[in-house]
């Protein structure tokens, strides 16, 4: 009994550095030696993929890249996958960010996507096939401005006047947008729904970090969002759908899913064991009393 007690006590008072080490190993090992675990696409992810897939070529897609580098591991793969899919389908893409530190990620994603699509003969042109509006301050006010008159935003990230860009020839307000995907690390998804899609009647989907995903399910159930990409898993599902259709390979999200699975299993296993140890310790203490 005393041996058990010592063992349980040692486990419950485990040095946190050992836990950190186990988490680090659970992340690193699958990244170095991938396990290629399965990831099946769910309805909410398929809905976004199918919408972009079924829109006629030349449709206008608005991507709101409302996140900063701290959420890059989860949301950046979504930006890359959505851009790739849109360019492969010959859609016009307008990108904007309501987050001050967001533009650099869009610049990086555009460069990466253009580089990766070049061997496939897809070479989107700035101002014609896509436009990046940069960071615009004001949150909901920017959305209302876009809803009334998109030219009111004046210039794109490179300083070109919007009315001079061919992509904006037939896009004068949010009403001319065929589909929007908001990639958000904060609450801008609510803002886009309230002031954008609901007021100007267009279809919208959302990609968010795993932490925020539970908050936006009411919008999905109420059909105010037509689909959800939730966290790294959502990004991975989208990458796999895209690869299955166009053989463009999978990106970082799919590679990261093995690591995330291992860490989840480690935490669940650790918590269950800790609870068992807790009950054993309590029963020993009660027996002693």
């Amino acid at each position: 009994m005393e041996r058990w007690e010592k063992l349980v006590s040692a486990y419950l008072n485990l040095d946190r550095r050992i836990i950190y080490l186990l988490v680090a190993l659970a992340v690193l090992i699958p990244l170095i030696w991938p396990l290629n675990l399965p990831v099946k696409a769910r309805e909410e992810v398929k809905a976004i993929f199918d919408t972009i897939e079924e829109l006629p070529p030349g449709s206008t897609i608005l991507i709101a890249n409302d996140y900063d580098p701290s959420s890059e591991p989860e949301l950046y793969p979504m930006t890359v996958a959505l851009l790739k899919h849109s360019f492969l389908k010959k859609h016009k893409v307008i990108i904007i960010t309501l987050w001050l530190t967001g533009p650099g990620l869009v610049v990086k994603a555009l460069e990466q996507v253009k580089e990766e699509l070049k061997p496939l003969g897809v070479e989107p042109k700035e101002g014609v096939d896509y436009a990046f509006l940069g960071f615009k301050p004001g949150g909901f006010a920017v959305i209302l401005q876009m809803g009334g008159n998109i030219y009111g935003l004046e210039t794109d990230y490179a300083g070109n006047r919007l009315e001079d860009l061919p992509i904006f020839e037939n896009v004068r307000s949010l009403r001319d947008i065929d589909y929007q995907v908001v990639l958000a690390a904060g609450n801008t998804i609510d803002t886009w729904i309230i002031y954008g899609s609901e007021r100007y009647s267009y279809l919208i989907g959302g990609g968010v970090t795993g932490v925020i995903a539970p908050n936006i399910y009411p919008y999905y159930k109420a059909r105010q969002l037509n689909g959800i990409l939730g966290g790294l898993r959502g990004a991975s599902e989208y990458e796999r759908l895209l690869n299955a259709k166009y053989q463009v390979g999978v990106g970082r999200a799919s590679k990261g899913m093995d690591a995330q699975t291992m860490v989840h299993l480690l935490i669940v296993f650790g918590v269950i064991l800790a609870n068992l140890a807790f009950f054993v310790q309590r029963s020993i203490e009660r027996g002693r009393d």
Partner: peptide, 24 residues
């Protein structure tokens, strides 16, 4: 900026694992 911010946020995984183990 990108690796520094991502690193700061990623540290949460370690703290969450430790906190879940101790308090859940």
């Amino acid at each position: 900026m990108l690796p520094l911010s991502a690193t700061m946020f990623s540290l949460l995984a370690f703290y969450i694992a430790s906190a879940a183990f101790r308090t859940f």
